[in-house]
């Protein structure tokens, strides 16, 4: 169990460092689909989302862009890891009753 927990913590830590580093390292250029949509003039058919929680991988209200992206990245890593781990546990318990 110790090794398993170590794997989980190490993996999430590596991912969090990776997510934080995107605040400095990630390219701001349009990505593949966005480039195609701009070149072939259908980018304007995109609808603006009806609501915003953490738009553009930033936390609204935090002016510093690097800090904002870094914190949004950590939030995403922790939430998605927690959700997936939890869901996996539910599936596994269903598969092995009492285990």
């Amino acid at each position: 169990m110790g090794r398993t927990r170590g794997l989980l913590l190490a993996g999430i830590l590596i991912s969090a460092v990776f997510a934080v580093s995107t605040a400095w390292l990630a390219s701001g250029e349009p990505d593949g689909l966005e480039r195609v949509a701009e070149d072939h003039e259908f980018i304007d058919t995109a609808k603006v989302p009806g609501y915003e929680i953490l738009p553009d991988y930033t936390i609204p209200g935090i002016e510093n862009e690097v800090l904002s992206t870094a914190l949004a990245g950590i939030a995403g890593v922790v939430i998605v890891a927690g959700l997936t781990y939890g869901f996996g546990q539910v599936l596994r318990r269903r598969a092995t009753p009492g285990g």
């Binding site: 989980l8 993996g11 999430i12 990776f18 997510a19 580093s21 995107t22 890891a81 869901f87 996996g88």
Partner: peptide
């Protein structure tokens, strides 16, 4: 699975 989800989320941020 949890680690994979965390890593892929982070990697998808890294343009």
């Amino acid at each position: 699975m949890g680690v994979m989800a965390a890593f892929i989320f982070a990697a998808q941020m890294m343009n």
